[in-house]
Every structure is written in structure tokens, then in C-alpha cells.
Nucleic acid binder design. Structure first.
Lengths: 127, 127
DNA sequence: CTATAATACGTTCAATTGAACGTGTTCGAG
DNA sequence: CTCGAACACGTTCAATTGAACGTATTATAG
């Protein structure tokens, strides 16, 4: 499985939009971008082309226009991104990051409940 | 508080070593690096200089040698790094990341227990 | 004392990334 | 038709990053 080159930040940003939309043209991605981002059409085009070259997206010529869709499972890519981050910043140790997240950022009561149930299930399964 | 320029990956890697050691010379950082990293002394020197220029580290001339130490609270920087990542990859929403982490990466039983206690405490406090 | 090793510091260099330009082509409104 | 808007694609360009070089200086083992 030929390893893809790493995702740059802007590339991930656009890839996530394509993932969310399922498939998208340059213009659709541009329009899905927050207005204050202020990217040029040509710039979005360039990034999508790069994503295709890197193997993350696949372009299909529909009529006169290119439609991009994901070539790899988004979750898989996300997993790689998270793993890379975890390795670099926490030596691959998830616990400190999890603790940081649940301490620091606001979780609602429901979210806490939900996490507890997830942990319960996990503890069950872990036997 | 003048915002620092962002931390590049290699820079964060070295900064973390300085944080861990409390203070360190170029050589000490070099030696604390995993052997397979294979960085040159001069390269480590360059990165530490950049970290100083960016305001993350402060160099003190001790004898003939530079000793680097952190200029900002490491936890603070770490918080920024995590926040940036969370924003970019999960739209600032911690829950999906937490769920991904506890599902995907191996947590030991004790770690799960510990998380549950943390969540209990958090739920208490949230009233 | 002197040659060698270690260091600081300025400089360089290639690859990657963020961002856009220019040109050729095409499609649809008048 | 024809003209302008939209698009594709090749190209460019500056900033950042990863990595190291070269030179001057100093400390130290012989």
C-alpha cells in the first residue's frame, strides 16, 4: 500500500470539505469554505489538484468539470493524522491527551455521560 | 502578549526535550534525541536558535556554552498546540477526538478506571 | 605551548507549502 | 454567431521548514 505523502494543513482543510460533501467541484469547495478564509478559486483548484497527486482524492471528469471525491477512507486518514499528532506531541500515549481534553475543553453533561457509557462498554469488552 | 510564530514539527520535537530536561545545551539535546533521528549537531543548534528567535526558548550563556531553557510555560504551549489541532481536525469539538482515542488506541484497565474517576469528579464539579 | 575538538553564529540550500497568475478552452446568454 | 464567465492546467513565487556548511573562537589533552 503505497504510502501517501503527508497532508499539509490547507490540504487537510479542503479534504475535509470534500469528505463532508461526498463529492465536490472546485467551486463547491470554495463556497463551502468560510467566507473569511478568502481563498481564490485558482488556489482551491491548486490544492485539490495536489490532493489528487498525493493520492487522497480522485478526480472524475463530469462534463467539462472536475468532480473530486475521496480515494481513501476518510476515517483512515483521520486515524493517521491523529496517530501522527499523538506520537509527536504525547509520545503516542493517549491518556494525557484525553485527560487534557476532558479537563480543558468544555464537555456538556450529556457528553460526559456518553463517555462514561463508552468506557463501561470498553471495560466489558476488555476481558 | 506578542503572539509567537507557530512551532514547526522539528522545533516542537526539540522544545519538548528542553522542557523535559529543564535546561539543556545543544549537545545535551542532541544526545537526548533517539539515535535513529540522525540529526547533526549544527542542525540541533539551528533549531534551538530558531526556537529562541520565536520566543519559545531563552538562551543563557554559561561559560563558553549556551544553555537553553523554556521561556513560556510548556503546558501553555501544549495547550495551544492541542487547540490548534482540535480546531483544524475536529472543528474544535473534543468529543469525537476523545472517543477516537479511547476506542482506537489501547488503554489499560487502570487507565480506564482512572478516566472514569476523572469524569465522575468532573460531573460533580459541574453543578 | 600547540594541535585538536567543541562551540557559536552567520549563511546556505533544497523541499514543501500557501497562494495565485496566465493561457487556452468551453459553455451558455444574448 | 459572439462574447464573457467559468474552468482546467501548467507555471510561478515567496515564506517556511528541514538540514547542514564554513569560519572564527576557545578550551583542553598532550
Amino acid at each position: 500500500m503505497a504510502k501517501r505523502p503527508p497532508l499539509a494543513k490547507s490540504e487537510l482543510e479542503l479534504a475535509r470539505i470534500v469528505w463532508r460533501l461526498g463529492e465536490a467541484t472546485v467551486r463547491q469547495v470554495l463556497e463551502a469554505l468560510p467566507r473569511e478564509r478568502g481563498l481564490d478559486f485558482a488556489t482551491v483548484q491548486t490544492y485539490l489538484r495536489r490532493l489528487e497527486a498525493k493520492g487522497y482524492l480522485r478526480a472524475e471528469q463530469r462534463g467539462r468539470t472536475n468532480v473530486y471525491r475521496s480515494r481513501v477512507q476518510p476515517d483512515r486518514v483521520l486515524g493517521e493524522v491523529v496517530k501522527d499528532f499523538l506520537d509527536r506531541v504525547f509520545d503516542g500515549n493517549p491518556l494525557p491527551l484525553v485527560e487534557h481534553l476532558i479537563q480543558d475543553r468544555g464537555l456538556t453533561d450529556e457528553e460526559i455521560e456518553r463517555l462514561q457509557r463508552t468506557l463501561d462498554a470498553l471495560k466489558e469488552r476488555q476481558k
